[in-house]
């Protein structure tokens, strides 16, 4: 049986990878994918804790996380399409209207 800490470390590594991706990538679609990666990393720890505590609640939270991820992906990709239509790019550097 795999101990919980192994799963948690896997989760941490994936989370950090996703985090790094969000910071260093310029392509907005890949940034969004990295966000999905982070969400999944969190899911891993939820599942791990659900197993450890013998409680199903963690799985249900994973379910909710996935639903929210689906909503986020839908709206986010719609935004990407709208952005591409205006700027013909998905490069985050070219989208800085909010610059102060």
């Amino acid at each position: 049986m795999v101990s919980t800490s192994h799963l948690l470390i896997l989760s941490a590594v994936l989370f950090a990878l996703g985090m790094a991706g969000v910071v260093i990538r310029r392509n907005v679609i890949i940034v969004m994918m990295c966000i999905e990666l982070m969400l999944n990393a969190v899911n891993v720890s939820f599942v791990a804790f659900a197993r450890q505590l013998g409680s199903i609640d963690g799985h249900i939270i994973v379910f909710f996380v996935m639903a929210v991820a689906a909503a986020e992906a839908g709206v986010g990709l719609a935004l990407v399409i709208a952005m591409f239509r205006h700027k013909s790019t998905v490069n985050l550097d070219h989208v800085n209207l909010m610059k102060g």
Partner: peptide, 8 residues
């Protein structure tokens, strides 16, 4: 000035 507009 802090608000660079850069998501990264």
């Amino acid at each position: 000035r802090l608000q660079t507009g850069q998501l990264n």
